[in-house]
């Protein structure tokens, strides 16, 4: 199902050959991945992070900097950045999961802003508020040339669907159910012999690493990295996406990312007061639907659709 969807999108984009559409699909895969990874933490493990952009930004900068040295190939730089993000996630996560509820969120925000401050002030390395200068080289590897937009597009889509399937597998595995137990009743989970703190840390690290993947993809796509990749507004946007799309449906965050990008696109194109319109739309969703759009749709369409989509999705 997912694979066929992937092929359809690729085929569509290649035949349409519409740069705007391709751009949308690419941004959707990047932010969809980002939102999906955040929902692993927020929706499945019940850990509300306000600092998720930390990993997105870290991935983008680490990858960009490695590539700019000119010494490493894309796959190597990719692996090293992701490994670095995992190390970052382990150390930050180990501190953050000691706190609960809103305090957990605030601490993640603090660490994210710390990274942001480092990026801003370490001008010689990161280019400060100008972002990474000079573009990110894309040397061909294994017969793949990412300089070619079509090849880049196909690879990004495959990458996206691969990771989505991976996350899907994760949330449907015993591990995924353990996360739900830790979220819903940590005391009972502990009494059943689950090391609650370890599960929280695992969720934090996996989610952070996947966000770093999205960051890497982003830096490749825009051929640069900017401080706002690690700014709190992006963390906020992530939460916005999962709330817009819905936290309880697996594909909700991706739908949310899509809605967010479309809204943003339409609004910025049609009005100069984008915040006003966006704010009003948000209010309507939050106060009107009181849940994500996909959550809402699924509740309306009843259990039939839920079963169908959760079997196939």
């Amino acid at each position: 199902m997912a694979l066929s969807g992937c092929l359809v999108v690729i085929a569509l984009a290649l035949t349409l050959d519409n740069p705007q559409f391709a751009d949308f699909v690419l941004r959707l895969s990047i932010f969809g991945l980002y939102a999906l990874s955040l929902n692993l933490l927020v929706g499945y493990a019940g850990l509300v992070s306000f600092g998720h952009a930390m990993f997105f930004g870290f991935g983008a900068y680490a990858f960009g900097l490695l590539m700019q040295t000119g010494l490493v190939s894309i796959p190597l730089a990719f692996v090293v950045s992701i490994a670095g993000a995992a190390v970052l996630a382990v150390s930050v996560g180990a501190l953050c999961i000691r706190l609960k509820d809103i305090y957990f969120g605030i601490l993640t925000l603090a660490f994210q802003m710390l990274l942001h401050a480092v990026i801003l002030s370490w001008v010689s390395l990161t280019g400060g508020d100008q972002g990474l200068q000079g573009g990110i080289p894309r040397p061909p590897f294994l017969g793949v040339d990412l300089g070619n937009p079509k090849q880049f597009f196909v690879l990004a889509c495959v990458f996206f669907f691969g990771l989505v399937l991976l996350v899907r597998q994760m949330v449907e595995s015993p591990f995924g159910y353990s996360l739900r137990m830790v979220r819903d009743n940590p005391e009972r989970a502990l009494a059943l012999g689950l090391s609650v703190q370890r599960y929280k840390l695992a969720a934090f690290v996996i989610s952070g690493t996947i966000a770093a993947n999205a960051g890497v993809l982003m830096s490749l796509y825009v051929s640069g990295a900017y401080p706002n990749f690690a700014y709190w507004t992006l963390s906020g946007d992530g939460i916005l996406m999962i709330m817009l799309g819905g936290m309880t449906v697996f594909l909700g965050p991706i739908a949310g990312a899509g809605i967010f990008l479309m809204l943003n696109g339409i609004i910025t194109r049609t009005t100069e007061y984008s915040g006003l319109v966006m704010g009003i739309v948000l209010l309507c969703v939050v106060l009107g639907l009181r849940r994500g759009v996909l959550d809402f749709v699924f509740e309306r369409c009843g259990p039939w659709a839920v079963r169908r989509l959760s079997r196939e999705g």
């Binding site: 597998q169 449907e172 015993p174 591990f175």
Partner: peptide
């Protein structure tokens, strides 16, 4: 409980 490769249950 931590198995990732298989489906629950």
């Amino acid at each position: 409980s931590h198995s990732i490769l298989r489906r629950f249950p």
